[in-house]
Design a protein around this nucleic acid. Sequence first.
DNA 1: GATCCTATTATTAGCTA
DNA 2: TTAGCTAATAATAGGAT
Lengths: 97, 97
Amino acid sequence: MPRRRKGRKRVDIVKMENESNLQVTFSKHRAGLFKKASELCTLCGAEIAIVVFSPGKANKVYSFSHPSVELLVDRFLGRDLPPPNNEGRHNHLLMNH
Amino acid sequence: MPRRRKGRKRVDIVKMENESNLQVTFSKHRAGLFKKASELCTLCGAEIAIVVFSPGKANKVYSFSHPSVELLVDRFLGRDLPPPNNEGRHNHLLMNH
DNA sequence: GATCCTATTATTAGCTA
DNA sequence: TTAGCTAATAATAGGAT
């Protein structure tokens, strides 16, 4: 029952060495990422698809999308028919990691 | 040149009515989202693909991915060959908006 | 092991340039 | 436009439950 809480600590953005913390850190960050995505959809009316594979042995897959991953990615990859608004579709601004 | 800055203000997560602010808000939030995704990749070794279509007339597309949108989404949609680690691949945990 | 707590850091809304 | 500033809010690391 100690009252002294430690509070948040700064963390460098480098690969965590497989600690037991990694899974909980992954879950918390994933939740935060999906929340941000949801806010961007609601606030601005953006359309977003996210697919995440968890690290390590579990290797589970999680997704967030509005409207759907398949629709948005097919549109992104140019597999779709020309949409009503056909502008700006051929200058994909890639920001790959 | 007034010194008194106003600082951040709380904002409700509801659809912004097409203000001139919407585009700048979208850009800032998108940058934040991609930064979070990058951190999740680096920190936890997760694999992430994001596709975002901007709202309104511009309707530009932006993406972040590691390793690639196509690879991850094909895996997500079950279009891939069975991966070395074949566990957890058929219980997709959907969290669609 | 998912959720709560909270001190602390991280992000950002509105402004300015 | 795009970028920088900073007060203020939002997110979260480590611990507790």
